[in-house]
Design a binder for these strands. Structure first.
Length: 349
DNA sequence: AATCCAGACAACCGCGAACGA
DNA sequence: GTCGTTCGCGGTTGTCTGGAT
């Protein structure tokens, strides 16, 4: 713990953990739980600071950790989530059961970054490298940090935070090199939601991505991309693997984007936003409204995952309680003209 | 066999938020 | 409201390992 008093005490061991230390910590926490971390080392008989114990438990000893290499699907999800959340590793980890923020961060820094660069994508912005260079090489600043996005500054995000212009490179990165000849593979559609398909290139519009120029409906986009309309929304298989969440992205004038992560599509032909350009900005929300909605995204996420929960990775969830908790927000959104998410996704409550 | 190097992983550090006295 | 303590997060550094020379 930076600044924590225990860290300044002498004779506290640092560095790698021995198996004996692991055993002590594991035994203690298994038996008594961690409680107050600062008291754990003393009670467990360890010459470590509480912060070190906590980290060791979270990143290594926890029984629910999934060890081993990341699967291609996990990698795709991390890329997808990073494009939306930036370096908010703990949030990203929350969508990958059994993985830790540290593990994902290391994987990103050591592996994914390099892969994306090789594919011509700037890992910080998820934009083509050539485009980033034009921007003055400020790529590291483009995505929100936790201090920006997690603390209510989402109102004020610019379009640089919007989904990437996928382009063929993004197709490749997602399809695992299977190649793309006009029609995305099923795998592509599973790991990327439709909004990441290259509207700009395919529709002959200029970068950067601009919702003013998106097709008037997913149908037209689908036809243009030879994607069956039935693939909208994206296959629910993604939602089995990741907790969906809604992101409300806004500039200072109100909502400019209403999307989710994980491919759990919220926009369909029947929704007024954002596909129907005529109505796209009908629902101007105040900063406060947007703010509130963003901060409640986790609750939405909790709700949206419900239909996929039975027997899934979230056996402890209580759908009914979750729904009752956020019902007021849902109703509030409905009064603003947003469709009910369950209805919108063909679900029933 | 020794050395170098890069990649992967583990752990530490500093900071800010949350919480209670 | 202030202060001290604790916790959690993200950035950074350290260590290990395997391959190349």
């Amino acid at each position: 713990m930076g600044g924590h008093p225990c860290c300044y005490k002498q004779k506290l061991k640092k560095g790698l953990w021995s198996s004996e230390e692991d055993g002590k910590l594991l035994n203690y926490i298994t038996q008594y739980g961690h409680g107050c971390w600062s008291s754990v080392p003393k009670l467990a008989g360890l010459q470590r600071c509480g912060k070190s114990c906590r980290l060791r438990w979270i990143n290594y000893l926890r029984p629910d950790l999934k060890r081993g290499a990341f699967s291609q699907q996990e990698e795709n999800l991390i890329i997808e989530l990073h494009s939306l959340l930036g370096n908010r590793w703990s949030h990203i980890a929350g969508h990958l059961p059994g993985r830790t923020d540290n593990e994902i961060k290391n994987f990103w820094n050591s592996c994914i970054k390099k892969k994306l660069r090789q594919r011509g994508i700037d890992p910080a912005t998820h934009k083509p490298l050539s485009e980033v260079k034009d921007d003055g090489n400020e790529s590291e600043k483009k995505l929100p940090t936790s201090s920006q996005a997690n603390k209510g500054n989402i109102v004020g995000m610019k379009k640089s935070f919007l989904p990437p212009q996928a382009s063929s490179t993004a197709h490749e990165s997602c399809s695992g090199g299977s190649g793309l000849s006009g029609k995305p593979s099923d795998h592509l559609l599973q790991c990327y939601s439709f909004r990441q398909i290259n509207y700009a290139d395919d529709m002959g519009v200029d970068h950067p991505f601009d919702y003013n120029t998106v097709p008037s409906s997913p149908s037209s986009l689908a036809m243009h991309n030879s994607i069956p309309v039935s693939t909208f929304p994206a296959p629910a298989i993604v939602a089995h693997q990741v907790k969906p969440s809604i992101s409300l992205l806004s500039d200072n004038s109100g909502i400019t984007s209403y999307s989710n992560c994980s491919g759990f599509s919220y926009c369909t032909d029947s929704t007024p936003f954002p596909w129907n350009c005529e109505n796209k900005f009908d629902k101007q929300l105040s900063s406060t409204q947007v703010h509130s909605m963003v901060e409640d995204a986790d609750k939405w996420s909790m709700y949206l995952q419900m239909p996929y929960l039975s027997g899934s990775s979230y056996p402890d969830a209580e759908p009914c309680q979750a729904y009752s908790n956020i019902k007021p927000e849902i109703e509030g959104l409905q009064t603003l003209g947003f469709p009910h998410p369950a209805t919108n996704n063909g679900l029933t409550l």
